[in-house]
Design a protein around this nucleic acid. Structure first.
Lengths: 113, 113
DNA sequence: GCATAATTCATCCATATGGTTGAACGAGAA
DNA sequence: TTCTCGTTCAACCATATGGATGAATTATGC
């Protein structure tokens, strides 16, 4: 398979596209900074599986980790989600520009009637 | 592996998380409804690969297909992207509610000083 | 030093994903 | 009928992903 550049946006969307990971984000948003073990306790899967999910979120910048003693405190970070919003807005504006161009073209034609 | 429910949001995020698919969406937003072959011509991969990407986008509702004779005209659909925005907003509001609660707790404590 | 606790690391497994190539299909054109 | 065109379907392959389990790590408490 060809080498694929991993843009931040791709990582963010990939990270957010898993239901378990979204649930983790929701949990963190509700409860605030939480230990890995405590997060894992909320899910019916192994601690290790949750730990891996958290690492994916961390790599995408969606959570940050603060190691206090032997506990790793995980905290949600909202900023990267704005990237998604930015992409969405850009796509929409491209789309609207085309529609505007179409409209003005039609108006011009009407003027020439 | 356990059976995983496929929510619309999961499908939308998964579909949007691939750079090629986002490029297809951008292209469609710019150029408007386009034939499959024509879309494929813009990418350095086989027609079949692009066709598969389009099917993923279609399953997520991000594009619609209009079969005109033997040509399949693909069109971008913006509506499902609002789902992402909705999720984002919900997460943020949960997050802000917690912060507000925290703040009012602190204020209360200050009042009691 | 030794047990304990919170995590990660290392393996392994099954399935999903993104890509390729070649065959099949459906419908107008010769 | 047979050819051609636009597209999907069917295999197939390599790698990624999500999960499990057991060992290793790291730092305190006894």
């Amino acid at each position: 398979m060809v080498e694929r550049e991993s843009t931040p946006l791709t990582d963010i969307l990939k990270a957010a596209s898993d239901p378990t990971r979204r649930a983790i984000l929701t949990l963190l948003a509700q409860d605030g900074p939480t230990r890995v073990t405590e997060i894992a306790a909320r899910f019916e899967m192994s601690l290790n599986a949750v730990s891996k999910h958290i690492k994916v979120l961390e790599a995408a910048g969606l959570v940050s980790r603060r190691t206090a003693w032997r506990e790793h405190i995980i905290e949600v970070r909202m900023e990267p989600l704005a990237e998604i919003d930015r992409w969405f807005r850009e796509l929409r504006s491209i789309w609207e520009m085309r529609l505007d161009a179409l409209n003005s073209l039609l108006t011009e034609e009407n003027d020439n009637d």
